[in-house]
Design a protein around this nucleic acid. Structure first.
Length: 771
DNA sequence: AGCTGTGGCAGGGAGG
DNA sequence: CCTCCCTGCCAC
C-alpha cells in the first residue's frame, strides 16, 4: 500500500502542462534536473452518472466501482481541455441538482491525481539535503505604517537570497531602482533553479507583495521552471485551536515552504515559543548568527538612508536564519511526501485530515472500490481528566500509556464502519511497524546526520499515526465513524481508571490524571534517590495491562504544585520548573503577571512565605511607580479568529462581546492601512479613564514611557487577581490575605502561616465538586 | 478548495 | 453585585 522503495527514481517536482499531461522533474545523480511529459487522466468520483447528462458522450469514460458506498462512479476525461475545465463542467452539472451539493468527490489537484494513478511519490530514495532549497526575504521601504503594495513609495529595496549550496546574495542598493531589483532577483532565482523556495511568512507577505510590485512594473513574475507565473488561490490552515487564512501560491515545478507554518505546527506540540517572528524563533532554537544585526521594522527606512550596509547585513542574517529554521523543521514533512500522494509544497500547507484521506482514497481507487460519504453527527466522548490533590506535594512520578489511542485502535479491532476494504487497521499497523523499525535504526545509527534524518522519518510516521483517531471523529472525513471514535475514547478512560486503581492498591496517591497519563505520589518503598524504584513501580503497572497496552515512565519530580485540572507546576530534581495550564502560562496574559505567577510558584514550592510577601510588595510598588520594562511587560496579546465583517455582524446580533482586540485592530486599519486579517495578534494595554475594557484599551505601540498613561489601579487589580489564584494553597483565607496585601499596623509575620494540601479519594466523588 | 478531536480555565460584556 | 454565555488559549 505504501510505495517508494525504488531508489532509481528521484522525482523532485510535478506540474500539469496541458490536457492530461504532467511534467515530471527528476534530479539526476549528477545533480542536474531533467524533465519529461507523461500522460495522466483527470478523473472524478460521482455518486450518480446522470450528472453528466448532456455532456458530450465521447469526451469521458466511466467505470462503476465495487461496493455500496456513496461515490460509485469513476469518471475519466482523457482529453479534457484541462483538469480545471472538466472540473468546472461537472461542478455546473451538479449545481443544477441543488438538493445534492456533495454529489462529486473531488480527489484533489492534478498532481495529486497523477500520484494516485501511478502509485508514485516524490523524493524517492532522497534525503532532505539532496533537495536544492533557496531562501528569500524582502525588505520594503515605507516611511510610516505597514508596507502597502499599492502605495508607490512603499517599494522593495532589497531582496536577500541564499540556498543550501552555500550561495547567498543581496539584490539592491541605494542607486538601484525597484524594477531592476525585481528583474535581477527573478533572474537569480531562475538561474539557481531551486526545487524548494523557503521563507518566513512568504504566503502572508513576501509573495503577495512581490507579485503586486511586479504587476506595477509590468515585470512578469516568471518563477516557474517552465517560465510560467505562479498560480494562487485562497486557502486556510489550522494549527490546533488557531486557524489562519492565506493566499496559497503554487509555482510550476517547485515547492513553496513557509517556515511560519512549520513553526506554528511545531508549537502545537511544544507550546514553548515566545512568539512566531523570525527573530524570536531563531533565538529560541539558537540559530541567530553571532553579532546578528537587528533593526526594528519602523527603523528600516531611516537605516536605509543613513547606513544601507547595515540593512544589507540584516537582510542576509534573515535568510540565514530562515534556512536554519527550515532545515530544522522540514524533515518530517519531507518524509511525509514519500508516503502520501501529495506534492511537498501541498504537504507543507495542509493538515493531517487531508493527508490521511488521500491514503484511503488511493487505496480504494487502486481496488476500484466505491468511496463513502462522510457521516453527519459528532463525537461525544473525550479524554478523562480529574485532579485529586491540590497544593504542594511530592515527590511525584508521571506514568503515561504509550501511544494510548493508536494502541487501543490496534488492539481492540477498531475500524470505521464504512471502511469496507479494511484499510484503516492495515495502514495503521504498517505505519506503526515502520516507525518501530525506524526508531530502532535511529538508536543504532552512528553520526549526527543519520540520526537526524531517521528522527525526522519516525516523527513523520508518528504524526500520521496520531491523526488516525482524530480523523474518525472529524465531520468532513469520508471515512469517519463517531461511534468508533467514542469507543476508542471510552476505552482510554477505562484503561486510565484501571491504572489509577492499580496505583492506589499499591499505596500510591493520585494527584492528577489527564487522558493518557497519571501524576502520582509513589508509596515510600517506590521512592529512591536513583529513580530505579520508581521505574520498577511503573514497569510493574505495565505488566498488569491488557495485551498491547504499555505504560511508560515519563519522568519523576521532586515537588509539584497542583492547582486545577490541566494546570500544575513540576519541579525536577535538576531544579528545572515546568508550568502547565492556560491560567498559569497563557501568552495572552501580561508578561509581568506571568513572571509574578512563575516566581510565586517557585517560592510556594520552596514554602518561602516571607519571600512571597516581599515579591507581592515589590510588584505592587513597581506598578505604582510605572517601573515597567517597556510596554511589553504589561500589554495583553490576543489573536483575531474571525473576519472583521463576521465579527461585526455577530456583535450587532448580540452573539458576542466586544473585546479590545477587534476594536483596536479596526482603529489600526484606519490609521495605518495595515489590513485586519485572521490570525493577526493585537497587543494592547488599559489606559486610565475607566469604562469598559474595550473603551479604555489602547494599542501597545501608543504607550509612551515618557508619559505613561496606563491605568495603575487596573494593573494593581490584575496583580491581585494573579495573587488570588494562590488562595487555595493556604490553610485559611486570612493567611492568604496576609501574604498578598500591604502590611497592616502590626507588620507582616510569616511565622505561623502554613500551606495546605487538600485531597479527596477518587471513589468519593463522581462529578466535579470544588474543594 | 480546504478543513483532526474533547476537556478545562479565565476574561469580560450584557443584562438581571 | 451576580449569572450567563461567548471567546481565546491551553492539555492531551
Amino acid at each position: 500500500m505504501l510505495y517508494g522503495h525504488d531508489l532509481t527514481e528521484r522525482i523532485v517536482a510535478l506540474h500539469p502542462v496541458g490536457p492530461g499531461t504532467m511534467r515530471v522533474y527528476r534530479r539526476t545523480p549528477e545533480d542536474a534536473v531533467t524533465w519529461e511529459d507523461e500522460r495522466y487522466h483527470p478523473f472524478f468520483l460521482l455518486d450518480d452518472i446522470d450528472l453528466l447528462k448532456g455532456f458530450p458522450r465521447d469526451r469521458f469514460q466511466f467505470q462503476p466501482l465495487a461496493g455500496s458506498n456513496a461515490y460509485q462512479w469513476l469518471v475519466v476525461f482523457p482529453d479534457a481541455g484541462s483538469y480545471w475545465d472538466a472540473r468546472r463542467h461537472i461542478q455546473q452539472a451538479s449545481d443544477t441538482q441543488k438538493e445534492r451539493p456533495d454529489a462529486i468527490y473531488f480527489v484533489g489537484g492534478p498532481e495529486q491525481q497523477y500520484l494516485m494513478q501511478t502509485g508514485r511519490t516524490l523524493f524517492k530514495g532522497m534525503e532532505l539535503h539532496d533537495l536544492h532549497r533557496l531562501q528569500f526575504d524582502l525588505e520594503v521601504y515605507s516611511e510610516r505604517g505597514f508596507p502597502q503594495a499599492e502605495v508607490p513609495e512603499h517599494r522593495i529595496i532589497l531582496v536577500a537570497l541564499s540556498d543550501n549550496r552555500g550561495w547567498s546574495r543581496v539584490v539592491g542598493g541605494p542607486l538601484m531602482d525597484e524594477q531592476s531589483v525585481l528583474e535581477e532577483t527573478l533572474e537569480l532565482m531562475r538561474e539557481r533553479d531551486p526545487d524548494v523556495i523557503e521563507g518566513h511568512n512568504v504566503f502572508g507577505f513576501d509573495l503577495p507583495y512581490l507579485a503586486a510590485r511586479c504587476r506595477r512594473h509590468g515585470v512578469p513574475l516568471a518563477l516557474g521552471r517552465d517560465g510560467s507565473e505562479p498560480r494562487s488561490f485562497p486557502s486556510s490552515m489550522r494549527f490546533a485551536e488557531r486557524q489562519i487564512e492565506f493566499e496559497a501560491v503554487e509555482i510550476a515545478g517547485r515547492h513553496i515552504v513557509d517556515t511560519l507554518f512549520q513553526v506554528m505546527s511545531f508549537d502545537v506540540f511544544s507550546r514553548d515559543l515566545p512568539n512566531y517572528t523570525l527573530k524570536g524563533v531563531a533565538k529560541y532554537f539558537g540559530f541567530a548568527p553571532e553579532g546578528r544585526t537587528y533593526i526594528e521594522g519602523e527603523d528600516i527606512a531611516q537605516t536605509w538612508r543613513e547606513d544601507p550596509q547595515r540593512l544589507i547585513d540584516y537582510a542576509l542574517d534573515d535568510v540565514i536564519e530562515t534556512a536554519a529554521i527550515a532545515e530544522h523543521l522540514s524533515g518530517s514533512t519531507f518524509y511525509l511526501t514519500q508516503m502520501v500522494p501529495m506534492p511537498y509544497g501541498q504537504c507543507a500547507r495542509s493538515g493531517p485530515a487531508s493527508k490521511i484521506e488521500s491514503l484511503f482514497v488511493r487505496g480504494y481507487l487502486h481496488a476500484r472500490h466505491s468511496v463513502p460519504r462522510a457521516e453527519a453527527g459528532s463525537q461525544i466522548v473525550g479524554g478523562y481528566t480529574d485532579v485529586f490533590m491540590t497544593g504542594v506535594v511530592g515527590p511525584v512520578v508521571y506514568a503515561d500509556v504509550e501511544s494510548l489511542y493508536p494502541s487501543i485502535m490496534l488492539n481492540y479491532g477498531v475500524q470505521p464502519r464504512r471502511d469496507a476494504l479494511g484499510i484503516f487497521p492495515r495502514l495503521l499497523q504498517r505505519l506503526t511497524d515502520l516507525r518501530f523499525v525506524t526508531k530502532r535504526a535511529m538508536r543504532e545509527a552512528s553520526g549526527e546526520n543519520e540520526t537526524r534524518e531517521l528522527d525526522a522519518r519516525q516523527t513523520a510516521y508518528k504524526n500520521i499515526i496520531n491523526s488516525f483517531y482524530g480523523n474518525m471523529g472529524f465531520g468532513f472525513a469520508a471515512f469517519n465513524d463517531f461511534a468508533e471514535a467514542d469507543r476508542v475514547a471510552a476505552t482510554g478512560q477505562k484503561l486510565l481508571r484501571q491504572i489509577m486503581a492499580l496505583i492506589r492498591d499499591r499505596g500510591g496517591r493520585i494527584v492528577e490524571v489527564d487522558t493518557d497519563g497519571v501524576l502520582f505520589v509513589p508509596p515510600p518503598e517506590a521512592q529512591s534517590a536513583s529513580g530505579d524504584a520508581e521505574r520498577a513501580f511503573v514497569s510493574a503497572l505495565s505488566e498488569k495491562m491488557p495485551e498491547g497496552i504499555r505504560i511508560g515512565f515519563d519522568g519523576r519530580f521532586e515537588r509539584m504544585l497542583s492547582f486545577k485540572k490541566k494546570t500544575y507546576a513540576l519541579l525536577g530534581y535538576d531544579g528545572t520548573l515546568k508550568v502547565k495550564g492556560s491560567s498559569l502560562v497563557s501568552r495572552s496574559t501580561e508578561r509581568f503577571g506571568r513572571r509574578f505567577v512563575r516566581r510565586a510558584i517557585e517560592l510556594l514550592l520552596a514554602e518561602d512565605v516571607a519571600a512571597l510577601h516581599a515579591l507581592y510588595l515589590n510588584h505592587r510598588q513597581r506598578i505604582i511607580a510605572h517601573d515597567w520594562d517597556g510596554v511589553a511587560s504589561f500589554q495583553r496579546i490576543e489573536t483575531l479568529k474571525q473576519p472583521l465583517a463576521r465579527y461585526e455582524r455577530d456583535v450587532r446580533d448580540g452573539k458576542r462581546n466586544r473585546p479590545a482586540s477587534y476594536e483596536l485592530a479596526k482603529q489600526r486599519a484606519e490609521a495605518t492601512g495595515e489590513p485586519v486579517r485572521i490570525g493577526d495578534r493585537i497587543a494592547f494595554y488599559i489606559a486610565g479613564g475607566g469604562g469598559r475594557v474595550f473603551e479604555a484599551a489602547k494599542l501597545a505601540s501608543e504607550w509612551d514611557p515618557a508619559d505613561p498613561d496606563e491605568d495603575t489601579a487596573h494593573y494593581i487589580g490584575r496583580l491581585d487577581q494573579f495573587a488570588s489564584k494562590f488562595s487555595a494553597f493556604f490553610e485559611t483565607d486570612h493567611a492568604f490575605r496576609q501574604v498578598f496585601s500591604e502590611e497592616d499596623l502590626f507588620g507582616f509575620d510569616a511565622r505561623g502561616i502554613r500551606l495546605a494540601v487538600r485531597e479527596r479519594a477518587p471513589e468519593d466523588v463522581t462529578d466535579d465538586v470544588p474543594f
